[in-house]
């Protein structure tokens, strides 16, 4: 009984954190580009992260990165490095920073920032070619970033 009460209290706290989350402009990066706190205040879901990674209309990470574990997804790109084992040599904090805004880790990289909403030149409204609305959303939501990071952490050296 008492245990259930504690769990309930805990998930309440997590719920409150989710409601706040960290807005794209408020993310704090370390000197090496790491982001220590969960952007959504919730843990990521690796299964959903795998979908986002492969999905053309979401992360579409696979357009630039090959991953052996995603053999069922056709056409892996070569613009970025192969990400096999990236969960072994990178921490979750590093990966969160790289997915949120890779330019904080790799200066000038061609990898897009997935959790950023300002500072663009001629931002568009998705892939319509038209001007972006004033309240431009990040490409991935806070929770989607966490999901992708959780997926990347499953890519361990075999």
């Amino acid at each position: 009984m008492r245990l259930t009460a504690i769990t309930a209290a805990l998930s309440l706290t997590a719920g409150a954190a989710l409601a706040e989350g960290v807005a794209p402009d408020d993310v704090s990066y370390s000197d090496y580009g790491e982001v220590t706190v969960s952007l959504s205040g919730q843990p990521g879901d690796a299964t959903r992260g795998r979908e986002i990674f492969a999905n053309k209309s979401q992360g579409n990470c696979v357009s630039c990165h090959a991953v052996t574990e995603l053999a069922d997804v056709p056409f892996h790109g070569e613009v970025g490095p192969i990400l096999d084992g990236v969960g072994s040599y990178r921490t979750a904090e590093e990966l969160r920073g790289i997915v949120a805004n890779a330019k904080m880790t790799f200066e000038g990289t061609v990898m897009p920032a997935f959790y950023k909403t300002s500072g663009f030149i001629r931002p568009g409204d998705g892939y319509t070619g038209k001007a972006a609305p004033d309240d431009l959303a990040p490409i991935l939501s806070a929770q989607e970033i966490e999901d992708v990071v959780a997926f990347l952490m499953t890519l361990q050296d075999s």
């Binding site: 579409n60 056709p74 056409f75 790109g77 061609v110 950023k116 030149i121 931002p123 568009g124 490409i139």
Partner: peptide, 24 residues
């Protein structure tokens, strides 16, 4: 110039990455 929310220039793809596959 690196345009858009993906911040990519013509050069990002056609100068730095020609020869590479970008998806298909």
């Amino acid at each position: 110039t690196r345009y858009g929310q993906l911040e990519l220039a013509c050069a990002s793809c056609h100068e730095q990455n020609y020869g590479n596959y970008i998806r298909a």
